[in-house]
């Protein structure tokens, strides 16, 4: 499964309002679910953040969890207009966030495989300085697709 096929343009916000880490995560959760389901997802995501930030460094964070509230892998992407504090491992602010929510029952453990793939692609975006390149969600999906194909070729 390729990552680009899991992205949907209505869940990519390239001009996300900067704010406190938890509020930014909440805004992204609401692009996936609303109401009590969103509250449940948010509670689990914030518990995960308490265990250690999912800010992997160099301006990228990947908050993630499994939740009963979803029946398939759901991804939201947000790029903040200004970098925000995320308590990332390199202590630097974050501007690109991939939020990933997986259902509890997950044949073939697609969740962890996708999580690993996002980390790999994120590192490539950093290396090639592509974080701020896309202007529209469509361009962002195309970029992810190209980076992913580039990684496959490089193997």
């Amino acid at each position: 499964m390729n990552l680009a096929s899991l992205l949907s343009k209505d869940r990519i916000t390239l001009s996300l309002k900067p704010g406190k880490k938890n509020k930014v995560i909440e805004d992204l959760v609401y692009t996936i679910k609303q109401g009590v389901d969103a509250e449940l997802i948010l509670s689990t995501l914030l518990k995960r953040e308490e265990l250690g930030s999912t800010g992997i460094g160099k301006a990228i964070a990947i908050p993630h969890c499994r939740s009963l509230a979803v029946d398939k892998l759901e991804i939201a992407v947000g790029r903040t207009t200004k970098p925000i504090k995320f308590n990332a491992i390199d202590k630097k602010p974050v501007s690109l966030i991939f939020l990933i929510i997986a259902p509890p029952q997950d044949p073939g453990n697609q969740y962890l495989i996708t999580l690993g793939k996002i980390v790999q692609i994120a590192k490539e975006l950093i290396k090639k300085k592509l974080i701020g390149k896309s202007q529209t969600p469509e361009e962002f999906i195309t970029l992810i697709d190209q980076v992913e194909k580039g990684l496959k070729k490089g193997k």
Binding site: S43, T44, K47, C65, R66, L68, A69
Partner: peptide, 9 residues
């Protein structure tokens, strides 16, 4: 539900 999601974590 929250307990279950935390256990999955």
């Amino acid at each position: 539900k929250l307990l279950f999601d935390l256990d999955n974590l």
